[in-house]
Amino acid sequence: MINALYGALESGLIYAIMALGVYLTFRILDFPDLTVDGSFVTGGAVASILMVNGTSPFLATLAGGGAGFIAGCITGVLHTKGKINPLLAGILMMIALWSINLRIMGRPNIPLLNESTLFTQGKEFWQSMPVDQWLMAPFNWLGITAFAPSTFFVIISVGVLVILFKKLLDWFLHTEAGLALRATGDNARMVKSLSANTNQHIIIGLGISNAFVAISGALIVQYNGFADVGLGIGMIIVGLASVIIGEGLFGKSSIARTTLAVVLGAIAYRLILSVALQLEFVSASDLKLITALIVTGALVVPTWWKQWRDKQERVKKQKELTKTLEQERGKDVAAASTD
């Protein structure tokens, strides 16, 4: 159970990079981009085939991100130049990428267990330092070693990486180009009248978004130890779930706050999922159903919660008013009329 939760935390952090990409298109550009399902695998496919052929894992991961960037840009061109509806442009790219990913990989599954990956390389370096022992000390001291993870390596290293990506996105969205990108999603007509090329913004925005997604995919295949062509199925829903859960739980008052919320949302989603899978009557095949339930819940619960609170408020005020009315005009007048 404990190991499963730490596993969820680790993969949640890796998926957080993908969620940041989805946030960029879904919220900032107001473009529901389904390319994600394909570009996630593209990142993993490019990275793994390069690593199998001896490229350094770092460069392979970067190349994966680059491939995602190109995929996103193509979706953008389909939409802006080809005037294809955003959803359809994304779906077209998604199914095209399925075949392209198979071409890149050459087979549906590439094992990476014997390859040198970012994680195997990083781990060697990590173990040369006594950081794990320091971090383990409080657990030993409290006598709860059973609650400690076997290593903090992935959590710390990917955690730092995620913060880096979050900061990068925050910074970009506050630059002049970033402002124009945000305005494109907010009021396209206005940005055009302020001499900004909205088409270009949409294309580049989709490119950056899918680069994030593909890097996340490249990291996941290295973390899992294999690349699979089916890895990206439903990925857009995972991304949306992260964004929606994050915003619901942790707020969205500013850009920096929202990106943090998205990262935490990605982790929260993985944790909820892993807890649900621990239940006896739930089998692994129920995963998609649980995802659907989580997203529905995240969408519906805040609305209902607000409605319920507003109603409580209303009822309270009504009670006070009827009380005064009762004193002034008597019980019969004050009684609420119902059907």
Partner: peptide, 28 residues
């Protein structure tokens, strides 16, 4: 129609400034 509702006043003005200056990676 003339302003971006989800951005602040200063961000909107910065956008207006971008009309004559090339929008780069400087702070908006």
């Amino acid at each position: 129609a003339g302003t971006a509702p989800n951005m602040s006043i200063e961000e909107n003005l910065a956008l207006a400034l971008g009309r004559v200056e090339r929008r780069g990676l400087r702070k908006g």
